[in-house]
């Protein structure tokens, strides 16, 4: 009688062991699939010109030089990099101010017309306006080909607004009531009470916004056709897919292409190890049903 269960148990542990090993092997291979392409790009970007003219992209470092990056520094790409950085920072600050202010307001249950406002915002999630109508209004506002077009038309993300609102809805009413009795104004409450408790969500949403701005491509192509006002992503796309460089003086070697690509992913590569947990916690907060 005890023999049978033991043998099934043993078989199960054996198959279990095989599974555990296969699982680990699979996940390691998966990580390689993720790391190798990025590694490939970084290694090629720091190689010398002579090492990148062969028939392969480099998989191991053959030489180390920042030549390609120095070429970027004195050309249109660097200007685009700075433009992207500056507009991303300004845009993120504006977005976060708008989002936190509106998120706080919408989290207050006694706000008049709260349901109507929420309905309007939800509509934008379900019925996407579409790109061409947005292009029409941006042209109507005479915004095309201006620096404003890089961040104003995409200032708010409904997803971010909703996660901020949901988070602020959980702040206990009593905290704000007592401040109101003490004569604190709504703005004072927002600054002194709400923002300090909402730091984790503000951090996460700030990151989301910054990445959105940094990565933006479609809207920039639509609203801006003056190459001197283009952002880095637009120039990178032209360089990689159409083979045209924004900098005619530079001979395009692979190390140059890869260096521009590294610039395109720079903020994420630099910040990711430190702020990864905010990205993950932000995602968790976002996945709470709203």
């Amino acid at each position: 009688m005890p023999l049978l269960p033991r043998s099934t148990k043993m078989r199960e542990t054996l198959s279990r062991r095989v599974f555990v090993i296969l699982n680990i092997v699979f996940l390691i291979v998966l990580c390689i699939v993720y790391i190798v392409p990025i590694w490939n790009v970084v290694i090629t970007s720091v190689a010398d010109d002579t090492d990148v003219q062969g028939n392969v992209y480099l998989l191991y470092p053959k030489s180390f030089t920042l030549k390609a990056y120095l070429r970027i520094l004195d050309g249109g790409y660097f200007k685009a990099f700075m433009l992207t950085l500056v507009t991303s920072v300004i845009g993120t600050v504006l977005s976060i101010v708008f989002t936190v202010a509106a998120g706080y307001s919408l989290s207050q249950k006694n706000l008049i017309g709260r349901r109507v406002f929420m309905l309007l915002i939800t509509i934008t999630l379900i019925f996407d306006v579409g790109i061409i109508p947005r292009y029409i209004v941006v042209s109507m506002y005479k915004m095309t080909n201006t620096y404003w077009a890089i961040f104003i038309p995409m200032l708010m993300s409904t997803f971010n607004l909703i996660i901020v609102r949901n988070y602020l809805s959980t702040v206990p009413e009593s905290l704000m009531e007592s401040a109101r009795i003490d004569g604190c104004s709504e703005f004072g409450i927002l600054l002194r009470i709400i923002i300090p408790v909402a730091i984790p969500i503000i951090a996460a949403v700030t990151l989301f916004y910054f990445v959105l701005y940094w990565n933006r491509y479609t809207e920039i192509v639509m609203f801006i056709n003056d190459q001197t006002k283009s952002t880095l992503q637009v120039l990178l796309r032209t360089l990689m897919f159409e083979g045209d460089s924004a900098d005619s003086r530079v001979q395009i070697f692979d190390n140059f292409k890869m260096a521009v690509m590294v610039m395109g992913m720079l903020p994420v590569l630099v910040l990711y190890p430190f702020i990864q947990r905010y990205f993950i916690s932000g995602l968790m907060l976002g996945s709470i049903k709203g």
Binding site: L30, C31, Y34, P37, I38, N40, V41, Y57, V211, W214, N215, R216, Y217, Q233, V234, L236, R237, M240, F241, K257, M258, M261, G264, M265, V268, Y272, Q276, F279, I280
Partner: peptide
């Protein structure tokens, strides 16, 4: 595995073209 989610489509496209 979560890293590329923060890359733009231009960067991901460039990585794939390479």
């Amino acid at each position: 595995v979560y890293i590329p989610y923060f890359f733009s489509w231009v960067v991901v496209g460039s990585i794939f073209i390479t």
